[in-house]
Nucleic acid binder design. Sequence first.
DNA 1: TCTGGGGTCCTAGGACCC
DNA 2: TCTGGGGTCCTAGGACCC
Length: 360
Amino acid sequence: MCRKKRRRIILHVDMDKFFAAVEERENPEIRGKPVVVGADPKEGTGRGVVSTSNYEARKYGVTSGIPITRAWRLCPNAVYLPVNYSLYQKVSARIMAILRGYAEKFERWGLDEAFLDVSSRVKNFKEAEKLAQKIKKEVYEKERLTCSVGVGPNKLVAKICSDFEKPDGLTVVRAEDEKAFLSPLRVRKLLWVGRKTENRLNMMGIQTIGDLANYDASVLAEKFGAGGTQLYLMAQGIDNSEVQEHWERKSMSREITFEEDTCDSKLIFETLDALSEDLHHELTASNFTFKTITVKIRYENFETHTHGKTLPFFTDRLKDIQKSSRDLVQDYLRSDRKIRLIGVRLSNLFSTEKQTRLAD
DNA sequence: TCTGGGGTCCTAGGACCC
DNA sequence: TCTGGGGTCCTAGGACCC
């Protein structure tokens, strides 16, 4: 197939320290202080992690993902706030509506990020930069929140750009400059390169994206499978993935970490039933049936297991969820092993709404 | 470092079918 | 029963994203 190659211009918009920024906006008295949004620190004995912190807290080393107990030790005087998810969802919906208006194709990426394909809306990168400034201005005027925007010839470069000058940044990299831009950056900056992959690459003598771009593609493919080829292409700045307007839901899940590790089977079953009920609500409200159910447990030593089964039929009945999850968790209940977390996931989803439409 | 909760995608082995 | 090859589905685990 010889599809005519079209020059694309993609924007990636990333809200700055989103959860913390919304809290600062709602509570003016905490502005200027270190703010940590996440689990309850409980005077240094809490469970869970930091979700988002503001820049004042980051000065103390309090960053996203660290245990809340550690945050407490680093900065006990910070303002600690619980995650007010429904508030952030409302703010996010308004911001996404603004962004969507600027894009030919639009893809939400979590609550606080989005990709915009603006290829048909601007003639060149100069115009794209002006458009990005306009977007930043509108978001700030309407929501009093700042964002960082990356402009590039594809999603990969746009995403890396938006992270380049945070906060309130705007970085533009044209197709002809992308190799020079990417080359000195750490491989960790690439999408899908997390801690494990970074370590493996470092062991191979690969530190920067430039090192990766000069590496033998066949060796990468051999060591990392399909992901290896993807890594090599990304390092060249090649990413042909489209901005995806629609996302099909593949699974829904609920999980919870106990306040204290437990082997109390009554508590475990009650918790499991509550998770099942919660899932059932969402399943029916969103008009799905499911066929596969998986239970997840994590023991006190963090050893984690999943156990699932596929039913011979699609269902949305609560009793099917509860009975199956109870059966599945049974194998893991042992009087000598305390459980830290349990969860339930429904997959193999089928949209009954779509079915009705097709039948019409 | 004592590690949340909601997702997606990939891999590898085994069952089962033709 | 010592044997094949391809395709699909299922299961468990792991890496990664926000």
